[in-house]
Design a protein around this nucleic acid. Sequence first.
RNA 1: GCGGUAGUGGUGUAGCCUGGUAGCAUAAGAGACUGUGGAUCUCUUGGCCCGAGUUCAAAUCUCGGCUACCGCC
Length: 369
Amino acid sequence: MFNIQYEDEKTEARAGLLKTAHGKVETPFFMPVATRAIGKYIGAFDYNEINANAIICNAFILSLRPGINVIEKAGGLHKFMNFNKTIFTDCGGFQMLRESFLQGSTKKGINFTNPFDNSTERVTPEKIMHIEQTINSDVAMVLDDVSPYGASYEQFVNSLKNTKKWAEECKKYHTSKKQLLFGIVQGGFFKDLREKSAKFVSELDLDGIAIGGLAIGEPMKEMFKAIDYSMPYISKEKIHYLMGVGSPDHLLDCISKGIDCFDSVFPTQNARHNTLFTSNGKIAIKKAKYKFDLSPIDKNCDCKICKNLTRSYLHHLTKINDPEAKRYMQHHNLHFMQGLMKKARTAIKENNFEKFKKEFEERFNKKEK
RNA sequence: GCGGUAGUGGUGUAGCCUGGUAGCAUAAGAGACUGUGGAUCUCUUGGCCCGAGUUCAAAUCUCGGCUACCGCC
């Protein structure tokens, strides 16, 4: 369950504690994405080393492979992947945005093409609740219907209708006492739809409230607007989870709007594409200027990569496209995110969040020279 | 010395026969990435060995030179 412990005076930011079956997570926090019970080139060993207290896996994708019977036999997802802290599971709704995956959604659920054998896979609220409870994650997400950016008002109305109906069904089929269940606000980029959805999800009285359907290609202004449309109607006492947002500066912006929890592939995807986060802005480590640079990625960082490896060496590894380098760089970026969230929590406790955010963003958004 | 073959961005190549916008890969430079099927995507820079000839027009055809490789003496 969730308690708010500190509230910032000048912004909506708050710091609190989320308790799950696998421990406490201080908010605000950021979750690495481990879709298949592992990230790309990175997994539980690294999540532990960087002190990530929560991660998110994808229940739908895990149900396709290895299958829930395998995970059940292993004693649940935590034992299966050897991660003993909080695990969220996503439901597959987001995979609607992948054309290769999606066949279409109906009132009953979503039809996907199973990428492993091209068979048709139908995800329903009942089924996804069964999956999430069987693999026994700490936080389950309800099934939602996600429309792409640029979809029409009518499409978003239809998505919202499904999302609402499915949330009610998920609540009905969710019987686990150990597992928390979060609802998801949809409604695209329309004020009335976001308002309607936010009110509905709040009234449904689940354990947490997520804002979904954002960071899907829209301009950031649009995203912030959609959050602003939703937030006034979301109950303050619940934990607020913004799905999919992961750029460090956006995280701080959203924390100041009252968001407590995030997940995103942004830091890891950037790392794999050779963009590293530092306290002095982003650096593209593959640039020739780092060829002879014997300093660490970030001299203010105490992750094992910064303590042991130079920019010159990492530059070399990116040049030869070594997969281990992707792990190193993802490790650093994820560590950076953990550090950033820790600093954000401290700033909130010290009633200093706005200043902290401003100073961070000034440095972070500085152009690489 | 003689004969053969070949010279196209930094690298590797396509185009040559049958003249008409020099294509591809890679490297280099820049940008993107946001509930992860992708070591991904986008953009930019950069080239016909040299010279003469034929032609409206030459990477392409002809001749000469240079260089490399192969074979022969």
